[in-house]
Design a protein around this nucleic acid. Structure first.
Lengths: 210, 210
DNA sequence: TCAATTTCTAGACCAGTTGTCTAGTAAAAG
DNA sequence: CTTTTACTAGACAACTGGTCTAGAAATTGA
């Protein structure tokens, strides 16, 4: 059950040359897993700590509080996801809308791979916002903003090629996509199948070449 | 802060002729408010009880557990919302798509009225499902199913009048709407404004008469 | 080389949570 | 007017959550 087997002794441990056993990274990794599944409020520190075999004291060495930890997770997740968007949406070896389709397909695979238990951290925390530290709000908004900007650029390219109707505003379209897609993730997690993802994708793509 | 002012005395209270001061109803009402804002996990019983001035003993007289309480809330919310759908979508004094637009407008008003703090109970709990009693899952799915069915019927009427393209499947369309709409609520709560609601509405309506 | 410092660990600690349980009060029933 | 019913009051136990202090070993630098 417990992740990487740490055999812990008291005191400062020998300097780790191998980077993978970095405690902080392990904590972030475990936090991402737990919180993409259960959100912020329902994720207990104990549970996360147990999963990596790290005591509370270590946690509070690396993070000031659970709130600070959450902020870091948003930051980390947002950036990782952003690179992922680049990987797909800037891939010049495919047409813009093809890149977009491949991206969606990768999301779909991700959901299936994790049995529809893990969703989107940003969506989860957004939903919970009513019970969350208020500093999260702007962070979450910013992340969405960035994802949308990247998506919008891809749409713009497609539009210039004539693959998207010119009376659609690409920025608005990207927003429409991300708003709806988060809804689709929510539903897919609830129903534990890909129906909602596919339904949304179909309709959205149909809308593009309208 | 505390809701309906109950001045409680010990012992069995006089039979209430006026229904509004029913303790159970008050608990449900308060539970709905709290949980549409903060979801299930982040809502403490104590907080809910304090807000209506009811002690634990009473709560556990009416409900077996927090889980049982949650089930009741889903049930209540689902039904109330369902009647609301009927109110709008079966109103023969307007054309089908007009009814639908009025419905959306009423949602929008609701969100504004509560400063974008209250969302949809079903959406909230759906998102949290990873940390919730598993009996909730089917309940939530069923509620969505019902809402979609009612919405689908309205679309069907519109389609028969020629207001919706015949190569759209109304059931799928209703699903598309509810999936996306929940996403829009999530985002509107996060951003504390109606942009996401309006963006989604615009695109969806544009999609209909495609 | 050896005290001072840094870095990290161990787990005690306290507040808050859910859910139980007993005692109590008064209306209602017979 | 006694018994029963329906509900309230809130203490309490078991547990979980987040925070914090003390401690131990590696590292530093005179």
């Amino acid at each position: 059950m417990s992740g990487t087997s740490h055999v812990k002794r008291r005191g400062r441990p020998p300097k780790q040359v191998d980077s993978y056993s970095d405690t902080k990274t392990a904590l972030i990794r475990a936090g991402l897993v737990t919180m993409t599944e259960k959100g912020f409020s329902a994720s207990g520190l104990d549970e996360i700590l147990r999963s990596v075999g790290v005591p509370k004291g270590s946690f509070y060495h690396y993070f000031q509080s659970k709130e600070d930890f959450g902020s870091t997770l948003i930051e980390t997740y947002g950036k990782a996801f952003s690179s992922n968007l680049d990987k797909y949406l800037l891939d010049e070896s495919h047409l813009p809308l093809e890149r977009f389709s491949y991206l969606i397909e990768s999301f779909r695979k991700y959901m299936i791979e994790h049995d529809f238990q893990r969703g989107c951290l940003i969506g989860n925390l957004g939903q919970e916002m009513g019970a969350l530290p208020s500093v999260f709000r702007q962070q979450l908004i910013d992340v969405f903003e960035e994802w949308q900007k990247k998506t919008s650029l891809c749409f713009k390219e497609a539009q210039q090629r004539g693959d998207i109707s010119t009376n659609l505003d690409c920025a608005e379209l990207a927003r429409f996509f991300w708003v709806g897609w988060e809804g689709a993730i929510l539903r897919a997690k609830l129903e534990r199948n890909a129906t909602a993802l596919d339904n949304f994708t179909d309709h959205f793509l149909k809308f593009l070449n309208k």
